[in-house]
Structures are given as structure tokens and as C-alpha cells.
């Protein structure tokens, strides 16, 4: 963090824009010379000049140090302004913040990655990491759900992973137009098509309801609470533990999360309005 204090964004340039779907874009952010580093699961605060700031997980390859990649869905004033930033435009950035997916825990084991909707974005760095050090891991499955085939993120890349067969990829959509030959149904239904071993670790990210269903299904498949990891989301204003908004029971999602072991959350996870 620079001397200007933890609340000061620094300007970064939009170097590349990928249109993912109607309302989702991926921005590659960079400066002239800076080498960045982050761990899968961490996030940055992105600032749209004069509009506001939001937390956005990094969705890029951790081994690419010349840019930080963020996948953003336009859902409000700030995200809309960020999504509209043109090539060469500037946004503010501070971070990285938060806890990472526990890659060390998975080494030598099987991993099932369950992503719902935009939840695939913070999990993509995990898959990059796994592909890079493929022999360090056991079976890797990606189960990704989306609203429609249109909304599936990173389509070409996911298709490539599927072809390469280094990852066992399963996709499902909640609703499909005529002609869709893929899976239709909730992402949890994909779990029945994969093998779960006594060593399987699960990383889950998506809307909270989807994560609740997934946890229930994983537990039915006998994945214990200490091997399920979730990425949680709460309102966040500062990302450095000052503003109090992101509290989830005793935890601050900004610094104790966003990645939590399900075992840690168990007592609160099922309570409404916590």
C-alpha cells in the first residue's frame, strides 16, 4: 500500500476489453511498468472517476504480472461506469485485498470447482493455476451454471479446456433456447455426474442461494465441512476493515474473507438476514 493511505486509488489504464455477454465485460488493467501479483480469490476496489468504488474479484491469470484482469457485471451506477470505460481509459484501483482460495490445501488432491453465474470469475485464476501446475493436482472438475447459454462466461476458453481434457468441464443453464444441446438444470445437478473421492476439496462461488444448495448437495455427497470453501459477498465500502459494512458474524469479509471455509461459517450460513 502506498504512503497516500489505504483509501487512495491509483490510476490504471484499460488495456483490453472483452465483451462476455450483454451486461458483463472483462477489463485488463495495467500501468506502464508495474508488475502485479495476487492470489486466486483476491479482489481489488475499482473506482470510476467521480462515480464511486466497488469490490471486484480478479479473474485473470496470476502468472501474468503485467496486468490485472477483472470481470464486471453492470448492475449499478459504478459498475455501469466501469463497464463503459473505453480502451485506453483510466480507472482507479486499490488492492489486492482479502483471503485467497487455499491452493496449498488442494495440492495432491481432487478439486471440484462449482461456479454459478458471475461466480466463475473469481474461480478462473484457480483454474489457470491448476492448469499451469497440472501434475500437482488430482482430478479437477469444473461445474459451471448460468442463466442461459448466452450468459456463460469465458465461453471460448471453457470450450478449450473441455477439448484439452485437463479439466473435466460440465456446464448447465437454467433455461435454454431451442437448439441448445447442453445440460439444462441447476448447477448442483451436475454434481451427480462426477466422482467424489474421500480427498475431494470443493471451491464454490455464486449467489448465496446457489451456494446453499451446493453445500447441501456436497454434504449429501459426503464432502465434509472442512473441505468446502465459499466466496462470500457483503456490502463493502473500504476493504480495509474500517467501515464495518462487510461484517458476517465475527468476520469481516474484506479481510477475513472473501474466501471462507464452510466449517467457519456453518452456524451463520443458514440464518436469514445475518
Amino acid at each position: 500500500m502506498n504512503t497516500a493511505g489505504p483509501m487512495t486509488p491509483r490510476p490504471v489504464v484499460v488495456r483490453n476489453i472483452h465483451i462476455e455477454s450483454d451486461d458483463v465485460v472483462t477489463l485488463d488493467l495495467a500501468t506502464e511498468s508495474e508488475a502485479w501479483s495476487f492470489q486466486p480469490g483476491q479482489f481489488n476496489m475499482l473506482y470510476a472517476f467521480g462515480v464511486g468504488e466497488v469490490p471486484v474479484s480478479m479473474s485473470g491469470d496470476p502468472s501474468q504480472t503485467d496486468r490485472l484482469v477483472h470481470t464486471i457485471r453492470s448492475v449499478g451506477a459504478v459498475t455501469e461506469a466501469l463497464c463503459r470505460t473505453p480502451l485506453g481509459g483510466v480507472v482507479g484501483l486499490r488492492g489486492p485485498f482479502g483471503t485467497p482460495w487455499p491452493m496449498d490445501t488442494v495440492r495432491g488432491r481432487d478439486l471440484v470447482v462449482v461456479a454459478g453465474g458471475l461466480g466463475l470469475a473469481p474461480l478462473r485464476p484457480v483454474l489457470y493455476d491448476v492448469l499451469r501446475y497440472r501434475s500437482d493436482y488430482g482430478r479437477i472438475s469444473l461445474l459451471a451454471g448460468a442463466r442461459t447459454p448466452e450468459d456463460l462466461l469465458f465461453k471460448r476458453e471453457v470450450e478449450r479446456w473441455k477439448q484439452q481434457a485437463a479439466i473435466d468441464v460440465h456446464l448447465s443453464v437454467d433455461r435454454a433456447p431451442a437448439g441448445w444441446n447442453g445440460q439444462v438444470g441447476v448447477v448442483t445437478s451436475l454434481l451427480s455426474s462426477i466422482d467424489i473421492s474421500a480427498q475431494t476439496v470443493a471451491f464454490v462461488c455464486g449467489p448465496e442461494v446457489m451456494m446453499r444448495f451446493t453445500v447441501r448437495e456436497l454434504q449429501r455427497r459426503r464432502v465434509p465441512a472442512e473441505r468446502i470453501y465459499l466466496s462470500m459477498e457483503r456490502n463493502m465500502k473500504c476493504a480495509v476493515g474500517f467501515c464495518g459494512h462487510c461484517q458476517l458474524g465475527p468476520s469481516f469479509v474484506c479481510k477475513d474473507g472473501p474466501i471462507f471455509r464452510y466449517e467457519q461459517l456453518k452456524s451463520l450460513f443458514w440464518l436469514p438476514e445475518i
Binding site: V75, G116, L118, D174, T188
Partner: peptide, 15 residues
């Protein structure tokens, strides 16, 4: 039924 319920919730819908 459980799957259909979740499907009906349309959890990925844009808010």
C-alpha cells in the same frame, strides 16, 4: 422438485 425450485428462483437474474 428441489432442482426445479432452484431453477425457478432464477438466481443469476440481473437485479
Amino acid at each position: 422438485l428441489e432442482r426445479v425450485r432452484l431453477q425457478r428462483l432464477d438466481v443469476y437474474r440481473a437485479p
